[in-house]
Nucleic acid binder design. Sequence first.
DNA 1: GTGGTCTAGACCACT
DNA 2: GTGGTCTAGACCACG
Lengths: 125, 125, 125, 125
Amino acid sequence: MDISLLPEDVRPAYRQISDRIAAQILSRSMPGGTPLPSIRTAAKELGVSVITVRSAWEALEADGLITTRAGSGCFVAELSDAELAQRRRSQLEPMLDRLIRTAKDMGCPPDELARMVKQRYGQGD
Amino acid sequence: MDISLLPEDVRPAYRQISDRIAAQILSRSMPGGTPLPSIRTAAKELGVSVITVRSAWEALEADGLITTRAGSGCFVAELSDAELAQRRRSQLEPMLDRLIRTAKDMGCPPDELARMVKQRYGQGD
Amino acid sequence: MDISLLPEDVRPAYRQISDRIAAQILSRSMPGGTPLPSIRTAAKELGVSVITVRSAWEALEADGLITTRAGSGCFVAELSDAELAQRRRSQLEPMLDRLIRTAKDMGCPPDELARMVKQRYGQGD
Amino acid sequence: MDISLLPEDVRPAYRQISDRIAAQILSRSMPGGTPLPSIRTAAKELGVSVITVRSAWEALEADGLITTRAGSGCFVAELSDAELAQRRRSQLEPMLDRLIRTAKDMGCPPDELARMVKQRYGQGD
DNA sequence: GTGGTCTAGACCACT
DNA sequence: GTGGTCTAGACCACG
């Protein structure tokens, strides 16, 4: 599943999971119709409680990113490119705004911030 | 004090307060030695309990951004430019990394992300 | 938990608690990963309010000695031997310095002071 | 007066002052009969309020280290050598005990602690 | 069950 | 007046 839970992350476990999967759906690396692993399987794999995984699946369903079919499991929702683009924007924007607000408060100018973005983008795993 | 509490903000009240003041200290708009308002005054002004303000001040002190002297009040700590720069970086970095990781997951390239940063920087309030 | 609150101690209750636990972490008698008792359990055991215990846990977390995960509890942080040694030093040093300054002010020579240290070390409870 | 107030010291201002003077009295560097500066003079010199100085003088008088003569000021008490030795011990002991207890909690052996005492004694101002 | 946050209200030490 | 500590009790998010 390509998910690693970081204990030092401020987000609760279920949020780390749902955020990560949401991003994979939005990038089409999990295309519409892809089945999600069962709650029990995912729980074992991630080393968390089934409740935690269920919360993550619920968050994704509430967001309309997956659909649950009773008896057969959960599947990535079929979304148009336009919908995806819209959702991508709406996921990135709050993070962007918070970053920018903090940078502004600190007196960090836009070019400097953009430079940092580009620089760190290359460093990540 | 130039602080507005936003009910829609996900952060708890005390965090909104301490984050805002931390940013003002880091940008030198509150230089070392500046006295903070008393917790009771600030509580009245912000419309919260004194405990909420105290939590904020406590967080700032734990971060080494203010010092408190019982009976006389709280004051912005004297920090060197190097310390300030270091703290600025360590506050911005986790937000940057999370943003970049999400953007990467979505297949959003660095230049595109940098462009968004610059664009939204100009729009903010 | 091996903690006794002494009413004659000048330190506030929450400090007595956090200091004691900090020492146990620093001596590895509570190794990394050890779960702390829940704040409600500890409060009952120690005969104090949950808030008092929470303050103690909070101080420990601010010091980086424990990590807390909402819903699952608090755990001793994983610290390297080098980090531990560094923290031990930085906790002992201010007490040492104050003792030495007072002894110097009184004209008590280093050998005499060292002798007192060794002697009283053997007498303690 | 050879007193410097350290804002980072955990002790309140009046305690820093009274402790320092007490040590000078106990070492005979302020012998019996020596007049203390007036409260106003000391307050100006130290940059604190007269209330703070008065509290310090009160603490010294409560300890029997100075006496107040109405209209003429405060003077160092006349104390026998035996009394001084006794007081020296009772001032050093609580600091020693706290240091030793912390060191014990950390698993720091007596010889190691005594070594640190001797080493740091040489380094101070 | 866990911790996180906030409330109101009290008493104390310090300036 | 200032902050420091503690109390009891509430509601929420998380597992």
